[in-house]
Simulated assay, not measured.
Amino acid sequence: MTETPRVRVRRIYEEPSADDGTRVLVDRLWPRGVSRERAHLDAWEKEIAPSTELRTWYGHIPARFDEFAERYTAELADPQRAEILERLRGIAAAGTLTLLTATKDPDISEAAVLAGLLREHPDAAA
């Protein structure tokens, strides 16, 4: 039986924590007011972010989150995004992975969708 990976979702504006493990920014745009030094990133996987069209449509409107999650999950079948998702899956299998986002409510962000996929399907091929 495979152990559920430890995947966290945090805002990039929060101070890094000793238990963050590998810190990966999953937003397409660099967050305002955060220097690269202060971010303490291990990687910036901007290509896994939702398309501009989907992100614009969603607008972080809570009532649209379920449909956003479905549409974003479909976008993750794109070969480039699928490759990055597999890389994240490998990181999560090896230790704690913290997905970072600049959004005000990370519980309804692309990072939350990714974390859910990584927790629910730790061995799945994208």
Rank of each mutant, 00 (worst) to 15 (best):
T4S: 05
T4Q: 11
P5R: 04
R10L: 10
I12R: 06
E14V: 02
E15T: 13
E15D: 14
P16I: 13
P16S: 09
S17W: 10
A18W: 02
A18V: 14
T22G: 04
T22D: 06
R23N: 09
V24H: 04
V24W: 02
V26Y: 01
R28G: 00
L29N: 05
W30N: 12
W30Q: 07
P31A: 09
E37W: 00
E37T: 10
R38K: 15
H40K: 12
H40A: 15
L41V: 01
D42K: 07
D42C: 11
A43L: 14
E45T: 04
E45D: 08
I48C: 00
P50S: 06
S51T: 14
E53R: 14
E53V: 15
E53P: 06
L54Y: 02
R55V: 12
R55S: 11
R55F: 08
R55H: 11
T56F: 10
W57I: 12
W57G: 02
W57M: 10
Y58E: 03
G59H: 07
I61V: 15
P62V: 05
P62K: 14
A63Q: 15
A63P: 01
R64G: 05
F65H: 08
D66M: 09
E67F: 10
F68C: 05
A69V: 06
E70G: 09
E75G: 10
L76S: 10
A77Y: 05
P79M: 09
P79L: 11
Q80E: 15
Q80S: 12
R81W: 00
A82N: 06
E83H: 12
E86I: 02
R87V: 05
L88K: 04
L88P: 04
L88H: 02
R89I: 13
R89N: 03
G90A: 13
I91T: 15
I91D: 06
A93D: 10
A93S: 14
A94H: 07
G95L: 11
T96C: 05
L97F: 13
L99T: 12
L99S: 08
L99A: 09
L100C: 04
T103E: 07
K104T: 13
K104F: 10
D105T: 04
D107A: 13
D107M: 06
S109G: 05
E110N: 15
E110G: 12
A111G: 13
A111D: 05
A112I: 01
L114S: 00
A115E: 01
G116N: 07
G116W: 00
L117S: 07
L117H: 02
L117K: 01
R119Q: 07
R119I: 08
H121K: 12
P122C: 09
P122L: 11
D123I: 04
D123W: 08
